[in-house]
Design a protein around this nucleic acid. Structure first.
Length: 430
RNA sequence: GGAGAGAUGGCUGAGCGGCCGAAAGCGACGGUCUUGAAAACCGUUGACCAUUCACGUGGUCCGUGGGUUCGAAUCCCACUCUCUCCGCCA
């Protein structure tokens, strides 16, 4: 959510910024009309309430002295209907304002390239050289089944399209990657490891911005009674909401959390994209990085966090590039996003393997994440950041495609071997 | 799943239906004292919203949502969560 002072802005600048994020002018104008109505109504109803409170106090005093207050009581009772009517209209207006606000995306930082889509993303850097193959490199959807480590058919049999079963060295490598990444982030990068619930309440999904706008993308658990629960689409949701409603001490910042979790995405809009292989699944594994940072240092924190995700690719010796996403391509809550794209020889292109975002105070305002400045003073909103460090399944894809050999076997990256029981090679026989 | 107890400010914890936004303690912050620190003493210290150039003023908030009342932290109903005991269980 955006600050109301920003949305009220007279200069039209907020409107322009929102338009660059793909929002049309109508909702903002509607918001501004309702806001004006709300403020006028508040003045009116608060004045009536003030009078009512004064009268009630007077009644108390009269009664204490044993007097007859029936005239005053009648007068207050009379104004009751008026207060109620005004108040209920105000509540309505407040709800409409809130509904509109919840659908406004975050404003882009000034360093973000402006443009409507993927084509406007800016290449920041390329690291590592794509390997020269002296044979035709295969895609992982051919390599995996041939090696007997990925089974798409049985995944579909059990759970439907976009579910995969890992066997043997495949499962082992996935597990090794998880441990490798968690160790790196906790030991070298100063993150606290967290094992959160994989199911969260509606409030948590609201806090990070998955709801209400993108409910179709989530797996919802409808219980017979009680509130809805959601399978987490990313560990960002439980991690960022860990301190919702709390007031932290400034000295605690930045908080750095990392977690491995499975992620569940229904992705209603993705039909026909990446239908083959492991790239786009309803369930996948991810090691996530989250920081709650001081607002004046959050953009430095974004560089830091992005670098920490890159470190994983560097240690695994996978070539990649870093893209600064354009205003039109960024996620809903982000003020700035870097995507890490790993080279996939089987597809001859760079593909997303991590997305690192500074959400500034956008999520903090929704989730009520605040800190008390050292030396006292008003509580302020923290800035929240998140990034994949990395998407584990996609990392496995990258390893299979980049480390494949002419005989169909896969060399295990050196950094990973200690985590894979010393395994050096997945033999072609499976 | 059954029985009982509870939910109040950063924390602990009082609170006859009417100067209660809330005692007290702790913590934090400022000051006095000190070479410095500690101790002691004095003072300040909730959030949100609206309004005002500003000092300030008003409104809302005592788990959440309803209700009773001129007036609710205090009474009634429902829900959520926590704790204790019993049952079941990886």
């Amino acid at each position: 959510m955006l600050a109301r002072t920003l949305l009220r802005d007279e200069t039209g600048r907020t409107g322009q910024l929102l338009q660059s994020r793909g929002l049309e002018a109508g909702p903002l104008e509607a918001w501004q009309r309702l806001d004006a109505e709300r403020r006028a109504g508040l003045v009116e109803v608060e004045d009536l309430k003030r009078k009512r409170n004064e009268a009630s106090r007077e009644i108390g005093l009269i009664k204490r002295d044993g007097g007859d207050a029936s005239a005053q009581i009648a007068a207050v009772s009379q104004s009751k209907a008026q207060v109620e009517a005004l108040q209920s209209r105000l509540t309505e207006v407040e709800t409409e304002l809130r509904d509109l606000e919840l659908d406004f995306p975050n404003l882009a930082h000034e360093t973000v390239p402006v443009g409507p889509g993927e084509a406007d993303n800016r290449l920041e850097r390329q690291v590592g050289e794509p390997r020269e193959f002296d044979f035709e490199p295969q895609a992982h959807w051919d390599l995996g089944p041939a090696l007997g480590i990925l089974d798409f058919e049985r995944g579909a049999k059990l759970s439907g399209a976009r579910f995969t079963v890992y066997f043997g060295a495949g499962a082992r490598l996935e597990r090794a990657l998880i441990n490798f990444m968690l160790d790196l982030h906790t030991t070298d990068h100063g993150y606290t490891e967290v094992l959160p619930p994989f199911i969260v309440k509606r409030d948590a999904m609201m806090g990070t911005g998955q709801l209400p706008k993108f409910e179709d993308d989530a797996f919802k658990i409808d219980r017979v009674e009680g509130e809805d629960l959601f399978l987490i689409p990313t560990a960002e949701v439980p991690l960022t909401n860990l301190h919702s409603g709390e007031i932290l001490d400034e000295s605690q910042l930045p908080l750095r959390y990392t977690a491995y979790t499975p992620c569940f995405r229904a992705e209603a809009g993705s039909y026909g994209k990446d239908v083959r292989g492991l790239f786009r699944q309803h369930q996948f594994n991810k090691v996530e990085l989250v920081q709650l940072a001081h607002p004046e240092r959050s953009f430095e924190a974004l560089e830091e966090l992005t670098g920490q995700a890159e470190k994983v690719l560097q240690l695994l010796e996978l070539p990649y590039q870093v893209m600064a996403l354009s205003t039109g391509d960024m996620g809903f809550g982000a003020a700035k996003t870097y995507d890490l794209e790993v080279w996939l020889p089987g597809q001859q292109r760079y593909r997303e393997i991590s997305s690192c975002s500074n959400c500034t105070d956008f999520q903090a305002r929704r989730a009520n994440l605040r800190f008390r400045p050292t030396g006292g003073g008003k509580a302020r909103l923290v800035h929240s950041l998140n990034g994949s460090g990395l998407a584990v399944g996609r990392t496995l894809i990258a390893i299979l495609e980049n480390y494949q050999q002419a005989d169909g076997s896969i060399v295990v990256p050196e950094a990973l071997r200690p985590y894979a029981g010393g395994l050096e090679r997945i033999p072609a026989s499976g």
